[in-house]
């Protein structure tokens, strides 16, 4: 993949690298380096609404210990966090708050919907007047974890899946394509 037009050449951040033979290999390696760093230091936001928050706490504590996978500490402010674990149901009064929290997180940001309530409304799907039928009506979700509440192992598996997803990202290539 090379630079075709002059206009595109000027727009790109790393035009020189990619215009040479093998330049894209360097970009791929750079992507891999950045993704390796990002995927191993994803810090969640302390955001717990319902029962799943207790299982989230259990994941953070002694036996399950999410720090093993780089999800080091839960931060209390969205400005220091990289991801939200929506642990519990979201209702119509809470939805604007969740949106605001999501907006405050710096890019790149990720979302895990933990538990049936966050995935689809769960036990509150039918006949409940105040629960949003799935948190993905409010913010985009990367990983869905079913269960009511999911076991800590299930959340750990979701963490690993999220790491895989982050590792597939192409940050520099994306910039070239724009």
């Amino acid at each position: 993949m090379g630079i075709t037009s002059k206009k595109e050449f000027e727009k790109n951040d790393f035009p020189v690298l990619d215009s040479y033979e093998g330049g894209s290999i360097i970009l791929t390696q750079l992507d891999a380096l950045v993704n390796w760093a990002r995927s191993n230091s994803v810090w969640p936001l302390t955001f717990g609404t319902r029962c799943c928050a207790i299982e989230f706490m259990a994941v953070g504590a002694s036996r399950h210990d999410m720090a093993r996978f780089g999800y080091e500490v839960a931060r209390a402010t969205p400005r220091q966090a990289d991801m939200i674990i929506i642990s519990g149901s979201i209702n119509y009064k809470m939805a604007p708050v969740l949106k605001r929290l999501y907006d405050q997180i710096a890019d790149p940001k990720y979302v895990i919907a933990m538990g049936a309530c966050a995935v689809s409304g769960g036990p509150f799907y039918y006949n409940s007047y105040s629960i949003v039928k799935g948190a993905d009506h409010v913010i985009p979700v990367d990983i869905y974890v079913p269960g009511c509440p999911p076991r800590p192992e299930a959340l750990l598996y979701a963490f690993l899946q999220l790491q895989k997803k982050i590792k597939r990202e192409k940050n520099f290539k994306k910039q070239l394509k724009k």
Partner: peptide, 21 residues
């Protein structure tokens, strides 16, 4: 629990097509 735009949900005649399945 709710804001002023809502009705009173525990009344038997409460009906809401938008929020309730």
């Amino acid at each position: 629990f709710l804001d002023d735009t809502w009705g009173h949900p525990l009344r038997k005649d409460f009906h809401d097509d938008i929020h309730v399945v």
